[in-house]
Design a protein around this nucleic acid. Structure first.
Lengths: 344, 344
DNA sequence: TTGTAAGCGTTATCAA
DNA sequence: TTGATAACGCTTACAA
């Protein structure tokens, strides 16, 4: 069992001074004589004093802690976003509590509740794929809890977001395939209720249109974009009575699932079918052929989101909570979408 | 700015009852009349009441929260361990705060301090590679803060640990290469001050000995096992004036770095040089040839560690904090270490 | 420069 | 079954 913790009162008693002086000294207040301060700090170290953050935060109504909710910490994009968040928060004097929703709304809702009960000063959220009902997120707005959505946002009006231009990225990915000579291009998309997947999809559609390639609904397959989904998607594509020569997948994971499946079947990439993914997961550069993808700088997005959140926290002016920052993304060309001569 | 939060006193005032009754009702105490309880819960929902966990924990001297420190959340092993930890903790009524040390002692030390300041009920720690000085970890013991080391432990006596049998795994990996006909086997090892890498190394040495293969110090290269380290290690090996036909790497990341480098050079795997990695990172099954590796069940380790920690927390008997649990690991055979005829 | 005292929002003890 | 009250450990007016 944990031993009784040392408090400022213990220190005060020993030094025969008041606990308020101890508190001031430990907070490096200028209102304590240097000599007293030194004595107090020495005693604190001696006794192994450790501030009780609960009591301090309760009294100050300020935790200097921000809560982060992501779908899955193991995804490269999110872990690099967390790196950016932690670094920035730390510099600005904040601690970070990281949570994962595992793409479940119910869990997301509970995490929001728990983090609010812990009285975090603000929240950074990338919503789960399941999230359709935004009650728990709208309540943040109603309660005026500072929050910023990053990457996966939701269409509640008047929120702060840090996003990439998914439309442009979807357009770029598709245009790249078209420029490299591919004509019949499928799209593996995520749940279209999510803004981000809708935007990637719209970019795909726009690029086809600008190149006068007719849009074919059969070529768009919606899923949750896990590895198995990639397999199912490509199987569906292979069943079509005509040849599809390229796929733009809205994430790398599904693309890699499909590529592995095709390789087992002896289907050549990109000769038989080309691929472009999304997110630049580390695996995308390992697989053969290496996967062309869209790089989103997670750490940049994390950094921007944290700066924005903390400015909202510090700014009592609540009307600032209404800003959307767009972070640039880039296409990374690799082998999986190489130009192939004499296509269809 | 966040709006003023509703407290039990607000509810009490409105219902013209005492706040202690409200507290009891919200904690579902049997000592409140059903009718009163319903009225209170209705009012709480109505007003959007949310318990202040800081105040509650302060009063109870119990946070029902455990802190987790891992080197890097993006590593597959750790993110799967975290999944196991969260699931188990949740079932047992605990919340989890996840932190990453990024392999830096200084950060690890700060995280321990921060988590203790937050008054977590216990800690799960996988120590950073840099950690040589154990002061901050020993102080946990002195302060009697419940804690369990998992995967990466340290040699402070009388601690609780959940580990895999690294010696056995290192032995198995090496024996596998020997059984498949390889004779000159290098070892990429991590910092030998770390128990875990020392044990993998000792397993390697023991397997050589049991097969009457002389140990050659030149074949053991120590590093931090990042991707670049893998490249440096294999370059060193290639400079040797004799042929090395296999490598046992103490993690997958370094092995993959080396394999990518060799492939660029046109060196064939496993024909020219075979590989066995460690950890079963997702990338290890994607690379070609697929990497033979040791699978450690992260979620199993996380689960066991959490159960042990919580039993220590609940058990005032402090002498229980002295248990080491070993979780089994398995060799996963893939292409990178296939038997090659007519070696040496 | 230091001390006094109240209060942050709970919960636990005791009394009614 | 409910109420009154003190206490958890800290910070901060205000006083001295």
């Amino acid at each position: 069992m944990a031993s009784k913790k040392v408090t400022i009162h213990d220190i005060a008693r020993i030094l025969k001074i008041d606990s308020s002086t101890v508190s001031r000294a430990l907070n490096d207040s200028p209102r304590v004589k240097k000599k007293t301060k030194d004595k107090i700090i020495a005693a604190a170290n001696e006794l192994g004093y450790q501030r009780n953050q609960l009591a301090s935060s309760l009294r100050k109504s300020k935790t200097n802690t921000i809560g982060v909710i992501v779908p899955r910490i193991s995804r490269y994009f999110f872990s690099s976003a967390i790196a950016g968040i932690e670094e920035t928060a730390y510099k600005l004097g904040y601690n970070v509590i990281i949570c994962q929703s595992l793409e479940k709304v119910e869990r997301e809702r509970e995490l929001v509740d728990t983090l609010l009960a812990y009285r975090v000063d603000g929240l950074l959220i990338s919503v789960s794929m399941e999230t359709r009902n935004y009650d728990h997120l709208e309540s943040l707005k109603i309660r005026k809890t500072p929050h910023v959505f990053f990457d996966r946002h939701c269409d509640i009006p008047n929120n702060s977001n840090v996003l990439i231009d998914d439309f442009q990225a979807g357009y770029d990915a598709t245009q790249h395939l078209i420029s490299n000579g591919y004509k019949s291009i499928a799209h593996f998309c995520g749940p279209l209720e999510m803004e981000l997947y809708k935007n990637r999809f719209n970019g795909y559609v726009a690029a086809l249109k600008d190149n006068e390639i007719p849009f074919n609904k059969e070529l768009v397959i919606e899923s949750r974009l896990m590895t198995e989904d990639g397999v199912n998607c490509i199987e569906e594509i292979l069943l079509l009575p005509y040849k599809v020569d390229a796929v733009f997948s809205a994430n790398d994971i599904a693309a890699i699932g499909a590529i592995k499946y095709l390789k087992r079947k002896g289907i050549k990439i990109p000769e038989d079918i080309a691929f472009v993914g999304f997110s630049n997961e580390p695996m995308s550069s390992i697989i053969e052929p290496a996967l062309t993808t869209i790089n989103q700088s997670g750490s940049e997005i994390g950094k921007k989101a944290t700066q924005l959140l903390i400015s909202i926290i510090n700014n009592d002016n609540e009307e600032i909570n209404n800003e959307t920052i767009i972070v640039k993304s880039q296409l990374i060309e690799r082998q999986s979408s190489k130009h192939v001569k004499q296509k269809g």
